[in-house]
């Protein structure tokens, strides 16, 4: 019914140099993340740290996890999950940030001995 080639799994062998290159880049980026913490960027520090982490994660996903050559569906699945987490985090922060001022400071009888 289908020819043999189509029946075999779709293989993409990642070139050796690409894998090693991505690995090296990730280590460099780790160094950059650590380095940036010594520079005071105010509130931007956390943004920069997260941005670098996102770049690193993207490289891992694209090259180590083969998403670049994989079926788009798998990427959609993965991105849906991330979208869901972002939604959850954003709405939770939105609400807790609103009522945070209603909390009684230092109300923790079990830990404040």
């Amino acid at each position: 019914m289908e020819n043999h080639a189509a029946a075999e799994p779709h293989v993409h062998v990642v070139p050796l140099r690409l894998l090693l290159g991505v690995g090296a880049l990730l280590i460099v980026l780790t160094g950059v993340t650590v380095g940036v913490t010594y520079v005071d960027l105010g509130r931007l520090n956390v943004v920069v740290a997260l941005a670098i982490a996102v770049v690193k994660a993207t490289f891992v996903a694209l090259y180590f996890m083969h998403l670049r050559w994989d079926r788009p569906l798998n990427a959609v699945v993965f991105l849906t999950a991330l979208g869901c987490v972002v939604l959850f985090v954003l709405l939770a922060i939105l609400d807790t940030g609103q009522y945070h001022t209603d909390r009684i400071p230092d109300h923790a009888p079990a830990v404040h001995r």
Binding site: T30, T33, V34, V36, T37, D40, L41, N45, V46, A49, L50, I52, A53, K56, A57, V60, A61, F64, M65
Partner: peptide
Amino acid sequence: HLVDVIWIFLFPLLYLIH
């Protein structure tokens, strides 16, 4: 790799707070 990716986020979030 997913375990790695999660650590990539944990490291700056826990260790590198400015």
